[in-house]
Structure formats: C-alpha cells, structure tokens
C-alpha cells in the first residue's frame, strides 16, 4: 500500500466522522439555518421588502437571497469546524489523530472537508427554502458554485484556527458573535453599499465578507457593487493565508500538544 493510499483512507475516515457528527445532531446543525432563513424571507423579503421595492435593479426579496444563502454557509462552515475541533480537544480524542501516522495537512483537510460538507448541505436547505419565496434564475452556475465552495472553505479554516486557540466554550462563541455576525450583517447582505454615504462605503470595502456576498450575488443575479475579479482574488488570498497559518499551528502543536 502506498503512502498516498494511507493518507486518502485517513482523510476519508476523518471526513466521514465529521459528516456523521453533524448528521447525528441535525436538529442543532441542519434545521436551524432553514428556519432562520425562512423567517428572514417572510419578514424582510415579504413584509418589509414590498415597501422597499427594487435594489440594484432587482426585486428586494431576490436581492437578499444570495446574501442569506451565503450567510448560512459562512456561519455553518465556521461553527462546524470550531465546535468539532474544539470538542475533540476538550474530550481529548484529538489524541487519536496525533498519535497516528497522519500528516497535519490531511488532518486539516479532513476538518475543512467536514465544514464544507455542512456548508453545502445547509446551502442546499436554505436555497430550497428561498425557492418558496423567489424564483432563482442562476446567471452563472460555475461562478456561483466556485464562490460558494471557496467561501465555505475559507470560513471552515477560520473556524479551525479559532478552535486551536480556544480554551473554553466561551472562546468558541466569542468570535462568531462579536466578529463574524457583524461582518456578515455589514457585508451587504441586506443592502447595496451604494446606498451608504461615501465614507461608510470606503469603510465597508475593508470587510472581506462584502466581496464574497457580492461575488455570489453576481453569480446568481448578475449584479455586484464591486469588481468580481478583485473579489475572487481576495477570497483566494485569504484561503492561502489561513491554510498556511493553520498548518503552522498544527506543526507546532499549538493548543494540542504540551
């Protein structure tokens, strides 16, 4: 058996374990985003949206669909990895991996793969809900899929880093509450930044989530506030940086070895 085969088997094992984990607790992991999104659609899309009219030339309810899908993907990819990896530290079963001949990049891929799997499943659920309220007519399927997958990977990586540093359950909710949620809400999910005064538009440009939401909205609706090439470059840059940092942390045993 070649080394590569062993790695592939180890990767599949971690990935399957991760998928089974969130499926076992689907009431906590898969159901809430579907319900939350339905509420957003009813309240913002349907009740309030009808008074708002159009935004960037599309119906308001259609305008918020991409942002809501992506918001669910971001939150779920992140929280899947942060809670899974933190609890593997907390219950110490991360040691099962540390003593095994699995390279760190395989461990990282397995966990990120788990976050991506949950992102995909939640994305599908939320998209299904959104079809009840608006007719999605995808402009560019490839582009939509690419942004979807890359965003999910990016936040899975971020969740991993959060888990590495986390020492208590508080630490795994601080970042989502105080950083992630504000960034997504201010990332142009519910509005076009062209509505903002010039100063706030500039501030918004420092928010990486803005680029992802716009790139995704471009894939689905064909409208965007910013050049999509730049958006893609920024996403890729973040992924590269976070991957390198995660591997550095694993190689130095930060948070897992004494």
């Amino acid at each position: 058996m070649t080394r590569f085969t062993s790695y592939r088997i180890a990767f599949q094992t971690i990935l399957t374990k991760e998928i089974l984990r969130f499926c076992r607790i689907w009431i906590q992991t898969l159901l809430p985003p579907a319900i939350t999104t339905a509420l957003y659609f009813i309240i913002f899309g349907h009740l309030i949206g009808e008074r708002i009219g159009e935004m960037d030339g599309v119906r308001y309810i259609d305008f918020i669909v991409p942002g809501l899908i992506l918001m669910a993907v971001i939150t779920n990819s992140y929280s899947n990895v942060v809670s899974s990896f933190f609890s593997s530290k907390y219950q110490r079963h991360v040691e099962e991996l540390l003593i095994s001949p699995v390279p760190n990049w395989v461990i990282l891929s397995g966990y990120v793969g788990g976050g991506l799997a949950r992102g995909v499943l939640v994305g599908i659920a939320v998209t299904a809900v959104s079809l009840l309220f608006s007719d999605l007519d995808i402009r560019s399927f490839g582009w939509t899929l690419a942004v979807f997958v890359l965003t999910s990977i990016l936040f899975a990586l971020a969740g991993f880093i959060n888990a590495v540093y986390a020492k208590s359950f508080d630490d795994i909710s601080i970042v989502p509450t105080f950083v992630l949620t504000p960034l997504t809400y201010l990332g142009g999910v519910f509005y076009s930044i062209s509505m903002l005064p010039g100063f706030w538009q500039k501030i918004s440009l420092a928010n990486p989530v803005l680029y992802m939401v716009n790139a995704f909205r471009y894939g689905l609706l064909g409208v965007t506030d910013i050049p999509i090439g730049i958006a893609l470059a920024i996403i890729l840059l973040f992924i590269a940086g976070l991957t390198a940092f995660s591997l550095y942390l694993l190689n130095h045993g930060v948070g897992v070895k004494s």
Binding site: I9, A10, Q12, K17, L20, Q91, E95, V102
Partner: peptide, 29 residues
C-alpha cells in the same frame, strides 16, 4: 497507545471508535 485518561469521543459508538482509529492508520474500511 493506551493513555492514562479516557480520550475517546464519548458519544461515538464503540465499534466506530476502533474502526476510525484503524482508518487513521491507513487501513481500508
């Protein structure tokens, strides 16, 4: 290795814990 303290996932079924460990060592399912 049999460590001093319990270090498996308490919520996983017994067989899965052992099968997964084999997987980490590259043994096919």
């Amino acid at each position: 290795l049999v460590p001093q303290e319990f270090n498996f996932n308490q919520w996983e079924p017994v067989a899965e814990i052992v099968v997964n460990q084999a997987g980490f060592y590259g043994i096919p399912r």
